[in-house]
Amino acid sequence: MQLKVKVVGPLSRYLPAGSVDNQTVIDAAEGATVADLIKALGMPEDQKCIVSIDDEVVPTGERQSKLLSASDSIKLISPLKGG
């Protein structure tokens, strides 16, 4: 399946070259999890980031088990603070 992913903030450096509007499409096997997606993007397994699917945050502890589907609106948001 193909997963549409938006990566927001400094973590967008992990997006493939040529990505438009901080979005890309990742080929993934059926049954892929959030952890698989993070790995496919080339991020470290323990990468600090906020993952939201259809505007619901996936707790860090559920990344290994949270299944993804092609219809999901997936965002990976850089974990900044301050300002």
Partner: peptide, 23 residues
Amino acid sequence: SDDVKELADYGTNAMIDMMQEFG
């Protein structure tokens, strides 16, 4: 530090994209 690099590269306004997507 990645955190420092991000602050230097993007400035504190990097928060605006994050808060936008977060809601």
